[in-house]
Amino acid sequence: MASDRIFGLVVLMVALAYIASATQIQTSFLADPVGPKAFPILVGALAAICALVLIVRPDPDPDWPAARTFGSLAIAVIVLVVYAYALKPLGFILPTAFAAAILSYQISPRAGPAALSGVGLSVGLFVLFKFALGLGLVAFPKGILG
């Protein structure tokens, strides 16, 4: 019950904000009868109506995982975000090994296999992408190898 109501409320807020920003869209002198505003406003309004329906008639709650699992999920998201930023400056091999190992540990909490799969995946995928598929990946940052 509560999850659907909260979600409906979030959707309602987003939809209203969306409509509000859609009204700010600049129109050019080459206007067609509909213009660039109408369709986004229509979509936003439809979403808002559906959100109201959801708030009034919510479904039963899904099985949310325990707090610890949420911790793992949060760690996974943070790792992926950091990985996204690290990929360019630090090269492919090191960030990939770390990110893959941490993800692997989150799925099955055993340190040894997780570390192995991290290193294995990182080197294996690098060889695959670089030499079999010919993508222009950089293995290490330029500074280390001089």
């Binding site: 992926l80 990985y83 996204a84 990929l87 492919f92 990939t96 990110a99 893959a100 190992a101 993800l103 692997s104 540990y105 799925i107 099955s108 296999p113 997780a114 799969s117 991290g118 294995g120 995946l121 990182s122 995928l125 992408f129 993508l135 990946l137």
Partner: peptide, 16 residues
């Protein structure tokens, strides 16, 4: 192939 190898692999392929 265990999930703890497969899924990180899928993630890394997606990123690349």
């Amino acid at each position: 192939v265990p999930a703890w190898v497969l899924l990180p692999g899928v993630t890394m392929i997606s990123f690349v």
